Amino acid sequence: MPAYMVVDVRYDDLDWTQAYRRDVPAMIAAHGGRYLARSSPVERLEGAGEPPDTLAIVEFPTMAAARALLTSVEYQPYACARQAGARTQIYLLDGL
């Protein structure tokens, strides 16, 4: 069953983003994932609060494949850079 990762990013520092955008898509693909949507800025249609700077939806073949990306050794330096330069919420949900 497919799984969907929804990533909400609010930037504090952009220094990490060039390497992340260059390298991480190949890591996602190596785990069977693909971007379905990535938008900056995000258009809010309803609700309140600070909107994300970027919102992405990534499809993976399984929940395990999505988790494997986030815990992979190769991804860890990018995760650390992202965590140091942005406030991020990452959600994982089962597809239908």
Rank of each mutant, 00 (worst) to 15 (best):
M1T: 12
M1K: 15
A3L: 07
Y4C: 01
V6S: 12
V6K: 10
V7E: 10
D8Y: 14
V9A: 10
V9R: 11
R10P: 00
R10C: 10
R10L: 07
R10D: 07
R10Q: 12
D12I: 00
W16Q: 09
Q18K: 15
Y20V: 05
R22G: 02
D23W: 02
V24A: 10
P25M: 14
A29Y: 08
A29C: 00
H31A: 06
Y35Q: 03
Y35E: 04
Y35G: 08
Y35K: 11
L36R: 14
L36S: 03
A37I: 03
A37H: 12
R38C: 04
P41A: 09
R44Y: 03
E46F: 14
E46K: 12
E46A: 14
A48F: 11
G49E: 03
P51R: 07
P52V: 02
D53W: 05
D53M: 07
T54A: 14
L55W: 13
V58D: 05
F60L: 08
A65R: 15
A66W: 13
R67A: 03
R67F: 01
R67Y: 02
A68N: 06
A68R: 11
T71Q: 08
S72E: 01
Q76A: 14
Q76S: 01
A79G: 07
C80R: 15
R82Y: 06
A84Q: 15
A84D: 10
A84K: 15
A84Y: 02
Q89I: 09
Y91Q: 05
L92T: 02
L92E: 01
L93G: 15
L93D: 00
G95N: 01
L96S: 03
L96R: 14
